[in-house]
Nucleic acid binder design. Structure first.
Lengths: 225, 225
DNA sequence: TATACATTATGAAAATTCTAATTGTTGAAG
DNA sequence: CTTCAACAATTAGAATTTTCATAATGTATA
């Protein structure tokens, strides 16, 4: 487990590094923004602890870079008390947690653990098919790294497709899976067509591949090629 | 099993009666509208086979009377071919099936059987609480014999209430039962309030009893008194 | 290939569900 | 008996889902 500490106060940084090493982490230290950016560019850290007030800029810049890189590093923001605005900005930018100075080292350790645990959990809870990624825990779908804004039915639909790739799925199965017995089946599949259309349109926004192929008279097949 | 045949052609009537008696039914015959009304007033037939073209009026009148009496008799309409308009009217009025002349006696028998079977099934699939009746097989709710036009969520809601009468139901249970884990619970119960309000309003249309009592801080209780 | 028929796609309206803001109630504390 | 805060009711509006009418497409047949 590699951790990067971004902190300009040498005393504090030193004690954090000492503590975390004792806890079994590989721990590195950057004392300014530029160096932090360089390091985070070179390595994929499991977690980064970033002070916001740095001599050469705001720690928030690191977060932006991390997110631009699509790194999966967890990020904990550290700042002086009462910097609530930063907190909001930081979390919106994609930080995973927030700590106000002064803080207990055990507390920091606990948060790091929590983040790493969650990252692992999350990693097991994504499904990928070519350009499409589904994050189950967040009910979130990305196509070519662009987030799709899907409704619940659309999400259920694509989840069912991605769970059954490369095989022909009868319309009836789709209807049954999405609506259960709530519906008087067999009247029509208009609602399937309808949601399908919307889903296709949303995928097309970010991809030129047609993933949902119609199989005339039977149903659909989810595949690339 | 008592069956009434309403038919003015004696030859046809006779052959129907003969056939059905042989099949084990108690079978009676009315050769005009007035007599049919009188008979159906006196007895509760399991099923009535009604010709529409009668010398003294339309067989549809019998259906109306039956429905006004809240009789549970099944009704099969019989009419000459191409009387499609009647078909629609008849089924809307509450007929259970429709047959065009000339018809096969075995066919008639099959339909009678089907209707009686369904009536029996249906009877087992209703729940009643004071003025409120729920017909599960049709997802239909009546209050004082007036049919309520409910949406799916409203139906689920009243079904849950009527299944748990006279006890306090926490809001959370309702939410869980109606939405399962689809919802991020605990944010708010606005959707419960919302559907509840609509359900209450619809019940109030036909009843002055307040069935859904608020239990402050906990949830609701479904009862009369 | 032309035609008819069935199936699927599309767009827009209607219905339902959910959300958010406001107002009204209730019960506890002073 | 007030006042307050939490809770619930209400309302209107936004978002989603479903329905419906129509267009487009595919398949089989001649």
């Amino acid at each position: 487990m590699k951790i990067l500490i971004v902190e300009d106060e040498p005393m504090l940084a030193e004690s954090i590094v000492q503590y975390l090493k004792k806890e079994g982490y590989q721990c590195e230290w950057a004392n300014n923004l530029a160096y932090a950016k360089e390091k985070s560019w070179d390595y994929e850290y499991d977690c980064m602890v970033v002070d916001i007030n740095l001599p050469d800029g705001s720690g928030l810049d690191v977060i932006e870079q991390i997110k631009d890189m699509k790194s999966k590093s967890g990020i904990i923001i550290v700042s002086a008390r009462n910097a609530m605005d930063d907190k909001i900005i930081g979390l919106n930018l994609g930080a995973d947690d927030y700590l106000t100075k002064p803080f207990d080292l055990a507390e920091l350790n606990a948060r790091i653990k929590a983040i790493i645990r969650r990252k692992n959990f999350d990693a097991q809870n994504t499904t990928t098919f070519n350009e499409i990624e589904i994050y189950h825990y967040k009910k979130l779908v990305k196509v070519n790294d662009k987030t799709l804004k899907l409704t619940k039915k659309e999400y259920d639909l694509i989840l069912y497709f991605i769970s059954n790739p490369n095989r022909v799925i009868p319309k009836g199965s789709i209807a049954e899976h999405l609506w259960g017995d709530e519906m008087d089946m067999a009247d029509s599949f208009d609602f399937v067509y309808s949601h399908l259309k919307n889903l296709r349109k949303k995928i097309k926004q970010y991809s030129c591949i047609n993933y949902i192929h119609t199989v005339y008279g039977i149903g659909y097949k989810f595949s690339d090629q």
